[in-house]
Amino acid sequence: MTTTQDTTTPSDKTSGVTYTPEDGLLLEVEDLYVEFHTPDGIATAINGVSFDLHQGESLAILGESGSGKSVTAQAIMGILDMPPAVIPGGHIRYCGQDLLSMPEDQRRRTRGPEVSMIFQDALSSLNPVFPVGWQIAEMFRMHRGVNKSDALEQAIRLMERVQIPAARDRVKAYPHQFSGGMRQRIMIAMAIALDPAVLIADEPTTALDVTVQAQIMALLDELQQERQMGLILITHDLGVVADVADRIAVMYAGRFVEKADVVELYSAPAHPYTRGLLESIPRLDQKGQTLAAIGGLPPNLMRIPPGCPFNPRCRRAEDVCRRDRPELREVVPGRFAACHFAEEVINA
């Protein structure tokens, strides 16, 4: 990929609008809210989420199903179905420009060259009736106006880059002719085709076997280093996070309950939920372990309990937790947690 090697600063290649990150700051999400208006009521999927993403940084957003982690990714990409989704407040700034207030056609041109995404289910994300090479080439033709044969040539090089064996022979193959791991590689190739500055990976390996998962994560890591992309890794797997991410944000019921450097978070979690999660997973390198489980279930997003949303499941909860909602605050330098007793938890 000689053509893209030098473009470490992101810029729009077709419309002339250029995006330049200031001090490497790519993405700024500020106090974001997302609601789903359903016939049964309003579900608050994201409830005031803020974070930054810099060049070459990888941020993991960790959460269980219903925590709002995928909705966050979709809100950044601008692919939420609205309605039923509504964004009642917040900003998503890419290189200083607010994506939410941008006209739709300008925003559409950011998808691909600036911000790009990989999905969990590669089979349903690829169009089954077109050859994979054609689908990758289409990215170059659409966004860069490259002619057909050059685009196909670039697609082949990209397939080689994501280590698809015999790429030149398989460029005309259809998605169903590839294995799950190979399809995910094709998805990655499409996502990085236009050299985005930000790559969002939404559970990229959840559907894959563990040996294939290791291959894909290694590839993603390598590509990120090589291109200095900002990577947002959405996952529920504490193991994957530990292997890849620099920073981690733990999400619960639509808010960040903890945000920290990965090493620090794993060694001393500052929120009871994070702590409970770490204690509830069986570890491959331990035997005779007694699993401790977090009791109960995450709350219904239409009826998030007052006070701290985690309080019904928290063994440390006191009256104040049922009354006052704790804000995400800096407990010790660089460590943020939304818990009234964060100091106590971090030192426990």
Binding site: Q286, G288, T290, R316, A317, E318, A348
Partner: peptide, 29 residues
């Protein structure tokens, strides 16, 4: 690492097997 002698830390997560989703706020300290 053999951790069979270690008592689990039950300050933040428990080892009980009851489903506690209905207990709601009753599940406190």
């Amino acid at each position: 690492v053999d951790v069979s002698d270690l008592e689990p830390d039950t300050r933040f997560a428990g080892t009980e097997v009851q489903d506690m989703s209905d207990l709601g706020a009753g599940l406190g300290a």
